[in-house]
Simulated assay, not measured.
Amino acid sequence: MPDPDDLTARARIRQAALTQFADVGFQKATIRSIAAEAGVSPGLLRHHFGSKEALRDAVDAYVMDEIRRTNDDVTAASATGTFGASVDREALRPFQRYLARALLDGSSTIATMFDQLAAMTTQWVAAADETRTDRPGTDTHTRGALYTAMVLGIPLLHEHLSRVLGVDILSDDGDRRVALAMLEIYSHPLISTELAEQARAALYPDPPSRSAR
């Protein structure tokens, strides 16, 4: 059985790496600085993870596991009408910052993470399509990928959004403001389905056959 102290140290190292990779990026973060933040020696960090690259892989896996867990919780809660109580947005903020930095830095692992996020979002789009009264004009994969890009754009543009809104969007007040605005956007489309049909017809007079999936 693993030593509980080792498990605690491993978790501290992983959390410190997540924070530093998000704050300064993978290239600038060092084994020594991560170990110092975790309160361990560089040797113990290497004992647990071997290298900075392997540590990043562990952080990537942790971030995606937590996002999947949240996604599963929200999916289950939405089926029982307890959607709002199922999301711990404060707990998600470090992951938002981590993903934004990985996108900004062009991390070698961000492509895989984006693909996984897009796949999860596509499942939500497909489920939403089941209750639509009109027939979707584009496939779920395309819409899922675009939703993912738009959501990730919020933390990626953290500095600019915070300046325009006059509040740090990753603070409690800023996050609440963004969350409420996003709910408003999702629940009240900017244009009607009729106007969308007119625009679609004008842009593509002879579109390919439309599919609901």
Score class of each variant (00 low, 15 high):
Ser78Tyr: 08
Ala128Phe: 08
Thr138Trp: 01
Thr140Gln: 07
Thr30Met: 01
Asp23Met: 05
Ala149Gln: 08
Val74Leu: 04
Ala17Gln: 07
Gly174Pro: 02
Ala126Cys: 06
Ala111Ile: 06
Met182Lys: 00
Asp23Pro: 01
Leu152Val: 09
Ser51Phe: 10
Asp129Cys: 12
Arg56Val: 08
Gly153Phe: 01
Ile13Asp: 14
Ile169Tyr: 05
Leu146Val: 11
Arg10Asn: 06
Glu197Gln: 13
Gln96Ile: 11
Arg143Asp: 14
Thr142Met: 04
Arg213Met: 13
His160Met: 15
Leu104Asn: 14
Val74Ser: 08
Leu44Trp: 01
Lys28Pro: 12
Met182Asn: 05
Val63Tyr: 02
Ile34Cys: 07
Gly39Phe: 00
Val24Arg: 03
Trp124Ala: 11
Gly84Thr: 12
Ala149Glu: 09
Asp206Gly: 11
Ala35Cys: 05
Asp105Gln: 01
Pro2Trp: 14
Ala79Tyr: 03
Ala29Arg: 00
Ala85Val: 04
Arg101Ala: 05
Ser108Asn: 02
Ser33Ile: 03
Asp115Asn: 06
Glu159Gln: 08
Thr121His: 01
Arg200Asn: 11
Ala54Val: 04
Arg210Met: 10
Gly43Pro: 02
His48Thr: 03
Tyr204Asn: 12
Met182His: 01
Glu53Asn: 14
Tyr147Val: 15
Ser41Ala: 10
Leu104Glu: 15
Ala100Phe: 06
Ala128Val: 13
Ser78Arg: 03
Leu117Arg: 00
Tyr98Trp: 02
Asp23Phe: 01
Thr109His: 07
Glu37His: 08
Leu180Ile: 00
Phe49Gln: 07
Leu99Tyr: 07
Thr131Glu: 15
Arg135Thr: 14
Asp5Lys: 13
Ala38Phe: 06
Gly81Lys: 05
Asp3His: 06
His188Asn: 15
Ala181Leu: 10
Phe83Gln: 13
Gly43Trp: 01
Ser171Trp: 01
Ser33Phe: 07
Leu18Gln: 11
Val164Asp: 10
Met1Pro: 09
Ala202Lys: 08
Glu159Phe: 06
Ala9Trp: 00
Glu159Arg: 14
Ala119Tyr: 02
Leu156Tyr: 10
Met150Pro: 01
Ser209Thr: 15
Leu165Tyr: 02
Arg200Ile: 12
Ala11Ile: 08
Val125Ile: 13
Arg89Glu: 13
Leu165Thr: 03
Thr133Lys: 05
Ala100Gly: 07
Thr131Gly: 12
Arg14Trp: 09
Val74Gln: 04
Met64Leu: 13
Val164Met: 14
Ser33Glu: 06
Ser108Ile: 01
Leu161Arg: 04
Arg143Ala: 12
Asp3Ala: 10
Gly174Gln: 02
Pro42Met: 02
Phe21Cys: 07
Gln123Pro: 00
Asp23Val: 07
Met182Leu: 15
Leu103Asn: 07
Arg177Met: 12
